[in-house]
C-alpha cells in the first residue's frame, strides 16, 4: 500500500462514517429529502459551495484559462451576482411554502400533476447525463491512484457514492459536502504556494506569463460577446437550478439563507481564484500541453510532492462526489416522489415510501454507469453534452420558478410551454447558431417569450395556487 492509497482510504472512511451517522439521524421523508429543513448557515452554505464546485472547476475551468487567458476569470463575477439575485428576489417567496422537491413546487404553483411529471422528467434526463460525465472523471482518478482499469474505477466510485447517498439521504449529502469542501480547500491552499515557489513567487509568475504569452492579461484573447454572453448565461443559469433551490428548502429561514449564501459565495470565489492562479503557473511551467484539461493533472503529478499531489487528487474527487451526490438527491426524488408516488402509486404506505425513496436514488445512480459500461456516452462528446444539459435545465426552470413567485398571472400552460420551448431553442442554437454566443441565451429568450405570451392567452390561475406565494 502506498501513502497515496492510505490517504484515499482514510478519506473514504470519513465519508462512510458520516453516511452511517446520517442514517441514524434520518427519521422520515423530510429528513431524507431536505435534511429536516432546519440546516444552519454553515452546513447549508458549505453544501451549496461544494455542490457548485464540480470536477469541472478543477479540470475544465483551469483548462479554459490555460487556453484563453485571465479574461475568462472575469466571468466568475456573474456567480456571486447570481446567488445574490436568488437570495434577494427569489428565495423570500419561494420558501414561504416548503416542499420536498422542486417539481412539488411546480405542481402547487401550476395546479397540475402533469406539469410536475414533465419537470421531473427534465430533471431526470439532464442529471443522468451530467452524472455520467463526472463518473468518467472519477474513473480516471482511480486509474491514477490505484492503478485499476478506469471501468473498475467508475463502478467503484459509483458504489461509494450510492452507499452513503442511498443510506443517509440529504443528511449524508450535506455533512459529507462540508467535509469535501474542507478537502477541496486544503488541496487548493497547499498547491498554490508550492506552484508559486517554482516560478519565483507571484511577481515572478506575472512577469513570466506576460513575456511568454502576452495575450493572457488582455481582453482580446476571447471575443467580448462570448465573455459577456457567458457571464450572462452563468448569471441566469445559476438563479433557479433544482439542486440549489432544494437547498433553500433545507435551510432554516431567510436570515440563515442570507448567511449561508454569503459563506458559499466566499468559498466559491476563493476556490476559483486559487485554481486560476494554478492555471497561470501551468502556462509557465508546461507551455505546450496538447489540451488545457491536462494542466491540473500535470500540476498534481509534476509540481506537488507525492503526498500533496494525492491530497490534490482527493480534492478533485471531493469536488466530483459532492456534486454527484447532490444531483442524485434531486434526480432520485424526481423519480420516486414526483413520478412514482405522485403519478403511478399515490396510495403507497408511509413505510413503503422510504423504501421507494432509496430505490429511486439507487436506480438513478446505476443507470449512468450501466450506460458507460455499454459504451454509450464516452469521450469528448460527454463534455459537450454536459454543457448542453446544464444549459437545458437552466433554460427550462428559470422562468417557471422565478416567474411563478413574482407574477400572479403566470399559468400552467405558460410554464409548460416555457420549459419545452427553452429546451428546443437551446438545442437548435447549439446545432445551427453562432458559436460566439452561448446557446442557452436563445433558450432563455424563447422560454421567457413563451412564458409571458402563453400565460396571457390562457385563463388566469386559481386563487388556491397563488395563495401560498402572494399576499
Amino acid at each position: 500500500m502506498t501513502l497515496q492509497m492510505w490517504i484515499f482510504l482514510g478519506y473514504f472512511a470519513v465519508v462512510f462514517g458520516i453516511g452511517w451517522y446520517s442514517l441514524r439521524a434520518t427519521r422520515g421523508e423530510t429528513d431524507y429529502w431536505i435534511a429536516g429543513g432546519d440546516l444552519g448557515w454553515f452546513a447549508g452554505g458549505a453544501t451549496m459551495a461544494a455542490t457548485h464546485t464540480s470536477a469541472g472547476t478543477f479540470v475544465g475551468t483551469i483548462g479554459v484559462m490555460y487556453t484563453v487567458g485571465w479574461s475568462f476569470g472575469w466571468v466568475l463575477l456573474s456567480i456571486p451576482l447570481s446567488y445574490w439575485f436568488m437570495v434577494a428576489v427569489l428565495a423570500p417567496r419561494f420558501t414561504r411554502q416548503k416542499e420536498l422537491t422542486v417539481p412539488a413546487f411546480i405542481e402547487r404553483r401550476y395546479y397540475g400533476k402533469g406539469i410536475r411529471g414533465l419537470s421531473a422528467a427534465i430533471i431526470l434526463v439532464a442529471t443522468v447525463v451530467y452524472i455520467q460525465a463526472q463518473i468518467v472523471a472519477g474513473g480516471l482518478i482511480a486509474n491514477t491512484v490505484f492503478g485499476v482499469p478506469t471501468t473498475v474505477g467508475m463502478v467503484g466510485f459509483t458504489a461509494i457514492l450510492l452507499v452513503y447517498t442511498v443510506v443517509g439521504g440529504m443528511m449524508a449529502v450535506v455533512y459529507t459536502d462540508a467535509f469535501q469542501l474542507v478537502v477541496m480547500g486544503l488541496g487548493a491552499v497547499f498547491a498554490v504556494p508550492l506552484a508559486l515557489r517554482q516560478v519565483d513567487g507571484l511577481g515572478g509568475l506575472l512577469t513570466l506569463v506576460e513575456s511568454a504569452q502576452p495575450h493572457v492579461f488582455t481582453f482580446q484573447a476571447v471575443p467580448l460577446t462570448l465573455l459577456l454572453t457567458m457571464g450572462l448565461s452563468f448569471f441566469l443559469g445559476g438563479i433557479a437550478t433544482p439542486e440549489k433551490l432544494i437547498r433553500l428548502y433545507a435551510m432554516r429561514d431567510m436570515p440563515t439563507i442570507r448567511r449561508g449564501v454569503l459563506f458559499a459565495v466566499v468559498m466559491i470565489l476563493a476556490l476559483n481564484l486559487l485554481v486560476f492562479l494554478l492555471a497561470l503557473a501551468a502556462i509557465v511551467l508546461f507551455p505546450a500541453l496538447p489540451t488545457g484539461d491536462l494542466a491540473m493533472p500535470m500540476i498534481a503529478t509534476a509540481v506537488l510532492p507525492a503526498t500533496l499531489g494525492s491530497i490534490m487528487l482527493a480534492a478533485i474527487t471531493a469536488a466530483m462526489m459532492s456534486t454527484v451526490d447532490s444531483l442524485l438527491i434531486v434526480a432520485g426524488s424526481a423519480l420516486s416522489v414526483d413520478i412514482w408516488q405522485n403519478l403511478i402509486d399515490p396510495d403507497v404506505s408511509p413505510g413503503g415510501r422510504m423504501w421507494i425513496d432509496r430505490l429511486g436514488i439507487f436506480v438513478v445512480g446505476t443507470v449512468p454507469v450501466l450506460l458507460l459500461l455499454s459504451g454509450v456516452g464516452e469521450g469528448e462528446l460527454v463534455q459537450f453534452i454536459v454543457l448542453l444539459f446544464t444549459a437545458l435545465m437552466a433554460a427550462a426552470f428559470l422562468f417557471p420558478v422565478l416567474g411563478g413567485v413574482l407574477w400572479r398571472r403566470a399559468t400552467r400552460e405558460g410554464a409548460a410551454s416555457a420549459m419545452v420551448g427553452g429546451l428546443v431553442a437551446t438545442f437548435i442554437w447549439e446545432a445551427y447558431g453562432s458559436p460566439d454566443v452561448e446557446p442557452v441565451l436563445s433558450g432563455f429568450l424563447v422560454s421567457g417569450a413563451l412564458f409571458v405570451t402563453v400565460s396571457l392567452l390562457t385563463p388566469p390561475p386559481p386563487d388556491t395556487a397563488l395563495e401560498p406565494y402572494f399576499d
Binding site: W70, L76, L206, T218, P255, R258, L262, L269
Partner: peptide
C-alpha cells in the same frame, strides 16, 4: 494593463462580497 486585468478581478470580487454584506445588514435592520 496587466495590473488592471489581474488585480482588478480580485478587487471586483472583494467589492461584490462587501456590497452583499452591507445589503444583508441593511435587509435585517429594516
Amino acid at each position: 494593463m496587466t495590473d488592471f486585468v489581474f488585480w482588478g478581478l480580485f478587487l471586483a470580487c472583494g467589492i461584490v462580497v462587501v456590497a452583499y454584506v452591507v445589503w444583508m445588514w441593511w435587509e435585517e435592520r429594516r
